[in-house]
């Protein structure tokens, strides 16, 4: 425990030193303020921007989109995973697709989706789901594969029906893998929505960053970047914390 906190402390010092060095380099003019502004300036710019309320609509839009994309990917991916698991032949045929899916740049289809659906919410939702859903499908398949065979026998000794077996034994046994899928879906959904907004979109935080970049408005641009990085870090921290809580009681020492 003492080791943990010591390393955590060193890590904190390292991060603080990096930020401090950047601050110093910006303040002394070593780094041109037209390239990077000082971290303290980013923070104060973000504070002003948030206080003005002018960002509220775009925050709601972008975070709402990320939530929608993630929720759709998790629900549909889970359902698809269960269905594919039940059809071994389909699954064998799909395996090569799954194996290469994240190796090909699926995002390149975003402009194609705009061509079909116009510059609306639809292409962003679709590219987001397309990016995130496969991770959830793969995680569901993985989870169902790893349900120990002995649980099947336990279910029969306890004379459980199919639905009871699925809900009381298979689902909890597969849960760690499903959670991995959820984490990936959140992460991929976030990246896809921001990237889509950044490259081509009528509104949203990603679009705001692109606009601020085009207007040479560095204070606004860095404030927005800082905001998104903070949100992403917070989401990751919450998911990581949940993961740790599950792992602490479940994984330790099991073969």
């Amino acid at each position: 425990m003492a080791i943990m906190t010591r390393i955590g402390l060193i890590r904190l010092v390292v991060i603080a030193a990096l930020i401090g060095a950047l601050e110093l380099a910006c303040r002394t003019g070593l780094i041109d303020h037209r390239i990077i502004i000082a971290p303290s300036e980013m923070a104060s710019a973000l504070w002003t921007l948030l206080a003005s309320g002018s960002l509220d609509a775009d925050i709601a839009r972008t975070l709402g989109l990320i939530g929608l994309v993630t929720a759709l990917s998790i629900v549909l991916g889970f359902a698809a995973g269960i269905a594919i698991h039940a059809l071994p032949r389909l699954r064998e045929a799909l395996d090569p697709f799954f194996a290469t899916y994240y190796a090909v740049p699926v995002f390149i289809f975003y402009p194609v989706l705009i061509a079909i659906f116009g510059l609306s919410l639809m292409p962003i939702v679709l590219i987001g789901v397309a990016t995130a859903i496969v991770a959830m499908i793969i995680a569901t398949l993985n989870g169902l594969d790893r349900v120990p065979r002995v649980l099947d026998k336990v279910a029969r000794v306890h004379r459980l029906g199919r639905i009871a077996t699925a809900l009381q034994l298979q689902l909890p046994a597969a849960a760690p893998y499903l959670f991995t899928g959820i984490k990936l879906a959140v992460s991929y959904g976030f990246i896809a929505v921001i990237a889509a907004e950044f490259i081509l979109s009528p509104a949203g935080l990603g679009r705001d960053i692109a606009d601020a970049y085009a207007d040479f408005n560095n204070r606004r641009m860095y404030a927005l970047i800082l905001f998104l990085l903070i949100v992403a870090t917070l989401i990751n921290a919450v998911l990581h914390g949940l993961d740790m809580r599950f792992a602490a009681r479940r994984s330790g020492g099991r073969a």
């Binding site: 120990p148 002995v150 336990v154 000794v157 034994l169 046994a173």
Partner: peptide
């Protein structure tokens, strides 16, 4: 499996959750 028979398996079948 009829009622009245209990089985303990070789594999660890405790529920980790």
């Amino acid at each position: 499996v009829p009622e009245g028979i209990g089985v303990v398996f070789q594999e660890d079948a405790s529920f980790p959750w």
